[in-house]
């Protein structure tokens, strides 16, 4: 008798690819934060130049 364990398999696949997806999303999130910071820094620099 083969038990029906399809639900567990699906759960496992969701967790696997879900966590890879979450990690990739976190990479994107962190890099977009960096870009924001970089843009802010550029703006500050330009402001300083304009004032000078």
């Amino acid at each position: 008798m083969t038990p029906d364990t399809t639900a567990y398999m699906l759960l496992g696949l969701i967790v696997t690819f879900g966590s890879v997806g979450l990690y990739v999303a976190s990479l994107f999130y962190r890099s977009s934060n960096l870009k924001q910071d970089a843009a802010l820094l550029d703006k500050l620099k330009n402001d300083d130049q304009a004032r000078a």
Partner: peptide
């Protein structure tokens, strides 16, 4: 014996 879950 284990069904689909073995694929994990």
């Amino acid at each position: 014996q284990q069904g689909e879950v073995q694929r994990l």
